[in-house]
Each structure stands twice: as C-alpha cells, then as structure tokens.
Design a protein around this nucleic acid. Sequence first.
DNA 1: CTAGGGTTAG
Length: 396
Amino acid sequence: MIRFLHKVAKPFTSVAQSQINFPKHLKPTRINLSLKSYLNSNPTKTILLFSDLLRKKISAVDSYSLLYVIKACAKKSMDTEGKQTHTLVIKLGYEPIIFLQTSLMDMYAATTNKPYRAIEVFRQMQMDGVEPDQVTFTVALSACADMGALDKGVWIHDLISRKPEFSEDLSLMNSLVNMYVKCGDIRKAMLVFDNIRVKDVRTWTSMIVGHALHGQAEEALRLFSTLEEENKLRSSQSRGTKDQLLVPNDVMFIGVLMACSHAGMVEEGKRYFRSMIEEYGIKPRLSHFGCMVDLLCRLGLLKEAYSFILAMPIQPNAVIWRTLLGASGVHGNEELAAVAQSKLRELNASLVGDDVALSNIYAAKGMWEEKIMLRHEMTQRRTPGCSSVEVGKLHS
DNA sequence: CTAGGGTTAG
C-alpha cells in the first residue's frame, strides 16, 4: 500500500497553481506525460511517482495527473490507492470533471469485487448534478452486467432513452446488450440487438454468448451462421464492401464453443474448433481448449477429454484438470480422477473440494483403503501460509 | 505536447 493522502498539506487549487513558478521539468504537463508514459510499461511507477510528488509537497498535479493515477490503480488492482485518489479528487474539488468520475467508476469495477461501488459513484454524480455522458453510461452498464443487477441496468437504460442521440454510440449499445444478457433478460437483449443498425463484431459476440448462456444453442449457432453468410455475400460483391466484413474473432468462438458445450453438440463443437483454426487462422487460447474439454466431459467422453488435454500445445491450467476431475466423479472413473487430482497437486492448485471429489468416488466404489490413504495425505498436506483467501483467487 | 468506454471457458 502506498500512502500519500496524509502528506497533502493543503488542497490544491488552480489559483495556487498559477502563482507558483515551477522549474520547467516540474510543470504539470511535463509530469503528466511521465505519469502517462509509465501507464503502459509500469503502472506501479505511475503511482509511486505521483505519491513522491505529493510527499515533496509539490502541487504540480492537476486533473490529468489524477486521471493517470486512477488508471494505474485500475490496472494494478490497487484498491486502497484508488480509494485514496478518489478522496483526493473530492478534496481538490474535481468532482465535476466527468473524465475523472468515469475512470473512478471503471477503477472500482476493476479493483473491488463489488462493482456496486462504481454504481455508487454514478449515483453520487446524479445527486451532485453532474451530467453523465455516453462513456459514463457505458461504464455504468458494464458494472450492472458484472453484478447481474437488472433493476439498476433498466434504470440506466431509461436514463439513456431520454437522449436519442446516444443510440448512435455503438460502444454504449454493445454495453446495453451485454447488460441484458448478463442480467438474464435475453428478450430485451435481442430487442436492443435488433435495433442496432450498424453492428460490429462485439455486438454479435455479446448476442451469441447471450444465447449460449441461456441454453439457446441453436439460436447462438444460427446467429453465427447468419454472420458467416453475410460475410460471404459481401466478399463476393464489389470491393467496397470488403472492409465491412465482420470477421469472427477468438472471443466470438468462445461463445460458439460455449453454445456447443451447453447443448452437448460434440461433433459441431469439434467442427467449429477446427474451422476456427484452419479457416479463420485463430490460435486457440486456454479458454478455447477449456470449452472443448468441458464439451467432451459433459458427454462423459473422459478418455477423449484426457487425450485432448495431453495433446494441448499449451500447459493446461487447474480449471481444465478440475473439469476432468469433476466429470470423472460424475461418471465414476476413479483412475482419471486420480490422474486429474495429482495434476492439480503438481500445479499446487488443489482445493479442499478436489480431495472431497476423489474421496467421494472412492467411497462410492467401496475403495476404503484408498479413501483412508487419501484422508491421511490430506491431513499431512496442510501447508502453512496457504489461506482460503489466496486459494480463492483461482475462482475469479 | 495530455483526459474516460463495449465482447472472453468453469
């Protein structure tokens, strides 16, 4: 934690700024460019430099400096520093600056596991009479989506509806579709989707994922086919329409594979996985492999799932082994369960529940010696310093 | 010489 608030001697004002003659290298713009430049390479340095400036009682900071610090806090998930910066924004009277409010909302959504703080900032803006714009609404909807807060999302949608020109903002509309998807109102999501005249890849992706999440695999895949057909049509037409192609990307394929997985469509899933690699030239990521493992495991194709995992060109993570472990439990395959279990231990990522899963299989099969052995191992393996908080990060 | 945004397995 980096403390800097208590070092602030007095609130910074624009009057004070104009009265002080800073050395050239300490002018706000100059410093801000440094703060900004560290943002991509080393965000912690942005925060350190800023706290250093305050410690030296150099008030050569302005709203730009704060913005970069807030972004740095968001990037490094430094919630304490983020909160301190928020306090500083208020202390310096920068509340009406919409850029700061929006990035604060974004910061809270990124650093706390309660995005409702982002909505609280939004509420406060409403109370202070600070008018939100498209970007503020976009971030607010994203926070609602993360929380699954349909009531708040609808409230914000209502506020947006009063500004017809906002419906031209595609980022905002995509955020709106995503909010309805994540909050479970698929019909409303479709309604918004249909009303977006010029869509992009993200629009389609949100809707495909939406259908997949709602167990509407056919709708998801039909949507994907529609997109492919539109692309084919356009590429066969004049050259002018080529740049209007909406080429499916890796994220969209996660939605497609999710749909196949939820519907148990194993052959289709394999076909899409191949198509992704061969036709679209997309290198599958861990999440794509995870979808495939999930698909195979759901159908009880455990051996195939296992050989699929072994053939992966990248190292499988704990989630993948846990998928296999869970499915082995459901389908009573104690050999593969034990393999998955040991892989989890190798990764140093086994959870209490993983031992229980294997233990239950042994019990169900009457393998009491194995169960006792496992129980013995479990009690021996208690390593100090491994709290449930640290382990909990695996779930996020 | 500088400001904020949307899609991602389980």
